[in-house]
Design a protein around this nucleic acid. Structure first.
Lengths: 222, 222
DNA sequence: AGGCTGATTGTTGTATACAACATATCATTT
DNA sequence: AAATGATATGTTGTATACAACAATCAGCCT
């Protein structure tokens, strides 16, 4: 029926489900259960899981099953470190390459963030924040970079969500966005890069703070 | 018999074979042929190919087969652009974090490059150049970054190989390495970053030059 | 003669059957 | 009673059978 393989559909759906927190880190993904869940056999499920394994979303333990990736603190911090660099690169390139249409879209996303902030809706802000960042990825006009940034962004989503309700985080985040938009609008590549890197690094730092305060938060790999 | 799945062994072997040029970009990878080649059935082959597809080494065209990824000029240039950033990041971190053991290993790799240069053996230089760069990835002490850098490095190998015999490239490359080692030894993060970025960017530029001079070199995707 | 339609062929995608292995349970031995 | 080993069970990894689809070519119609 569908023109695209079942395994690919499954991969996307599972990825979404994991990112959305439907399956928590450490959960075992039972192929048979998923097969009956998605009305197919184990084969497409296996292929989907294999693909997710190569992107690092799940971890397969040979002969023991596949589990939603549970990253320890260092692994998350490392990823934030790389994310900061990639976002900074997106900003640097976007400052030089962004089109007026893309700038308009970025400013619209920014405005949407402002409304969510004013409404005090941090969940909504978080969602619109994602759109904002995707605008910058696109504006880098480097499709490979954009894809990689998007992938990492998705991987870190469960860990960024933890800091959703930290005091003043939304307000601070928006101010940082403000400076980023300004830098992009004025085509200041180095400033855009620095602001974006700092913006992401802050998230990594916040995560580290939380992990440090809740010692047993990042359980060792199951 | 083997403790690790066949599909994973296959994935690594196929990846090596592709990187080594045994299968050229655009080649079709026939699952049945590979199955008989590696003495197994289509299933592990399929899984290996799926995994390679998610890393971008091969491209699966639904219902039409899987092919070794054939990148057009822009796709390669984009990857070099990202590679430059990642290598620069490795350099920046390595300058601050490298241990004396790692510095020793780096200098040994550098010395091996010098010998290959003096012997005028550009193939050998190319190989030892890879070891040199891997030392820096490791010294970044960010395993995730190191893994990503290694992956991109492997992906670009077939396209870097094209410039192996460009006039003076080995000599210039070694001089660049010299400056990189110096920066890392003295812990100068910003210089290490800049030198490594420039080093990789030069390769991208060279590739671009070649592609421009041989117009039909990068054939459109089959 | 040229273009279109339909069967044919070969390949991919999926399901299922089977085998190999890891874990857990239970009996046996010390 | 504790520890160890064998068996049982359930899960994963692999092979194969089957179905669905795309490409090719032949035949027919215009």
């Amino acid at each position: 029926m569908s023109r695209i393989p079942q395994s690919q559909r499954l991969r996307d759906q599972l990825e979404d489900a994991i990112v959305e927190g439907l399956y928590a880190p450490g959960d075992r993904l039972d192929p048979e259960a998923l097969a009956s869940e998605y009305q197919c056999s184990r084969t497409p499920v296996r292929e989907a899981l294999q693909q997710l394994a190569t992107t690092g979303m799940v971890e397969v333990k040979p002969k023991r099953g596949t589990f939603v990736a549970r990253l320890n603190v260092m692994e998350v911090v490392e990823r934030f470190e790389v994310m900061a660099e990639l976002e900074g690169m997106c900003g640097r390139l976007a400052a030089r390459r962004i089109t007026s249409d893309e700038l308009t879209a970025l400013e619209a996303a920014h405005e949407a963030c402002r409304q969510a902030r004013d409404a005090g809706d941090s969940d909504e802000y978080y969602y619109r924040n994602g759109v904002f960042h995707e605008c910058i990825y696109t504006a880098s006009h480097n499709d490979f970079l954009a894809k990689e940034a998007l992938r990492l962004h998705a991987m870190l989503k469960p860990y960024r969500r933890l800091q959703l309700h930290v005091r003043n985080r939304v307000k601070d985040s928006f101010d940082e966005h403000e400076r980023i938009v300004h830098a992009l609008r004025s085509g200041d590549a180095e400033t855009a890069r620095r602001e974006l890197m700092d913006h992401v690094r802050l998230q990594g730092d916040r995560f580290n703070d939380m992990a440090a305060s809740i010692q047993r938060l990042p359980p060792p790999r199951a």
